[in-house]
Amino acid sequence: MSVPILNYLVLSAVLFSIGALGVLIRRNALILFMSIELMLNAVNLAFIAFARQWGDVAGQVIVFFVLVVAAAEVVVGLAIIVNIFRTKETVDIDEIDLLRG
């Protein structure tokens, strides 16, 4: 018995929303970052579900590209967060507020 495509799409939308809410609500830079990763993986799920629906491998190939991009983002993002932690000893984005106006 196969699960309808729609279920995957709903799951993907729910995961994406959880990620987006996390970015908007949480204040810890690392958690924010993890929420963004969750959003990207929700998109991957959507791509795979649509690829199945259209019987088209292109959607599955796109997922590999997205994975590579996400990996590159992780490298840069973690470096930035570690660098800021070394001077401020916090990754709470409410306390990183030098620039404003």
Partner: peptide, 16 residues
Amino acid sequence: QEAGLKYFLLGAFSSA
């Protein structure tokens, strides 16, 4: 540092 962090978080969010 702060500029980089802000740009990164919002940029990655908008990319998603």
